[in-house]
C-alpha cells in the first residue's frame, strides 16, 4: 500500500498548476460518447465569446479535434524518451540497472555488460540505479506534438507513434508545450482519451473542473462508474454530460450513480443528425447550426464555465 504521506505528495503534484489559467477537462470512460465533439464545441463557443482558448487534444492515440475543427496541424515537434546505452568501459557489471528495470528490457549475459533488448519506455530507472555513471541517454522517438492557431483558438495536439506504448509521455510533452506557449490563453480545455489509464490521469492534472461525458447505455453506465471512481481517487469533482440522452437505455443507472458520487448531471444532449452533419463538414455544430438545440446546450456549458472561472 502507498503510505499516506506519499499519497498526499502525489495528489499535491497532480493538482499543481504551472500556469495560472483555469483548466477544464472533458473526459469519460467510454470511447465514442462525444468527448471530442463536446470539447471542440465548447472551445468554439468560448472563442466566439471573445476568450482566448487553448484546446489540448490529449487523446494521443486517436487525436481528432483538428479534423472536427477543420484545422491543419502545424508546428510539429518530436516527443522523445531516453533509452539507455551502456558504456562498456565504465560498466562494472554490478547489474543494478538490470534489477531496476520493471520491464525486463535489459539483459546481462554471464560474461558481459548489460544490453537493451526489450521494450524500454524511457523511465530512466536504470540511469538512477547505475553507481558508475556508465549509462548514456539515447533518444527514442515516440510521437509528436503540434500547435495550430485559428483566430482566438490555440490547438495543442499530441500524436502517439503507432506501435509505441508511451502515450503518457506524449501527454506530458503536450502539457509542457502548453506551459511554454499557452501562457496568453484565458482558459485551457483538455480533451482526454477514453478510459482511466495513466495518460488520462496525466491529462487531468491541474484541472479545476471535470466534465465526464457518457451515454445512457449499459456500457456508458459501466464506464462512467470507473471514471467517477478515478476522479474520486484523485480528488476531482465530476459533472456529468449525458450525450444521446434520449436513447432508450438504463437512464436510472446513471442518475443513481450521479447521486452516489455526488456528481450533478449538468447537461443532456439528445441525438441529433445536425451534429453528425457538422462532423462530416469539419465545422463545429455551434457555428454551423447555431440555433440547434444541442448548440444552445453546449453554448450554455461554455457560459457556465465563463461565469464560474473567467470573471
Amino acid at each position: 500500500m502507498v503510505d499516506a504521506g506519499l499519497k498526499g505528495r502525489i495528489l499535491a503534484a497532480l493538482h499543481r498548476k504551472p500556469l495560472d489559467i483555469p483548466i477544464i477537462a472533458i473526459t469519460g470512460g467510454k470511447g465514442g460518447v462525444g468527448k471530442s465533439t463536446i470539447s471542440v464545441n465548447i472551445a468554439a463557443a468560448l472563442s466566439e465569446m471573445g476568450y482566448r482558448v487553448a484546446l489540448l487534444d490529449a487523446d494521443v492515440d486517436a487525436p481528432d479535434d483538428h479534423i472536427m475543427l477543420g484545422i491543419t496541424l502545424e508546428k510539429p515537434l518530436d516527443v522523445t524518451v531516453n533509452v539507455p546505452t551502456i558504456d562498456a568501459g565504465k560498466c562494472t557489471g554490478c547489474r543494478r540497472c538490470v534489477d531496476a528495470c520493471r520491464r525486463n528490457a535489459l539483459f546481462q549475459p554471464g560474461d558481459g555488460v548489460p544490453i537493451l533488448i526489450g521494450d524500454c519506455n524511457g523511465c530512466e530507472a536504470c540511469m538512477l540505479a547505475c553507481p558508475e555513471d556508465a549509462i548514456r541517454k539515447e533518444r527514442k522517438r515516440v510521437g509528436e506534438t503540434y500547435m495550430s492557431e485559428r483566430d482566438r483558438l490555440l490547438l495543442f495536439t499530441g500524436r502517439l507513434m503507432p506501435g509505441a506504448e508511451e502515450s503518457s509521455m506524449v501527454v506530458n510533452a503536450l502539457r509542457n508545450r502548453l506551459h511554454a506557449s499557452g501562457g496568453g490563453s484565458d482558459v485551457v480545455l483538455v480533451d482526454t482519451s477514453p478510459g482511466i489509464h495513466c495518460n488520462v490521469i496525466n491529462a487531468l492534472r491541474g484541472a479545476d473542473a471535470v466534465y465526464a461525458v457518457t451515454e445512457p447505455t449499459p456500457l456508458g453506465a459501466h464506464d462512467l462508474e470507473r471514471t467517477l471512481k478515478l476522479l474520486l481517487a484523485i480528488g476531482l469533482r465530476a459533472r456529468i454530460i449525458l450525450n444521446f440522452s434520449d436513447l432508450p437505455g438504463p437512464r436510472e443507472k446513471i442518475t443513481v450513480m450521479a447521486k452516489a458520487f455526488d456528481a450533478e448531471i449538468s447537461c443532456e444532449l439528445p441525438m441529433d443528425d445536425l451534429l453528425l452533419k457538422s462532423h462530416v463538414e469539419g465545422v463545429p455544430a455551434i457555428i454551423m447550426f447555431p440555433d440547434a438545440v444541442n448548440s444552445t446546450s453546449m453554448r450554455r456549458i461554455a457560459e457556465d464555465i465563463a461565469r464560474e472561472y473567467l470573471q
Partner: peptide
C-alpha cells in the same frame, strides 16, 4: 519472471543464464 507485465522472456533468460 513468469508474471512480469513486460519482458518475461528476457527475465527468464536472465534466470537460466545465471544458473549456468
Amino acid at each position: 519472471a513468469m508474471r512480469s507485465g513486460h519482458g518475461a522472456g528476457i527475465g527468464a533468460a536472465q534466470i537460466i543464464s545465471d544458473e549456468g
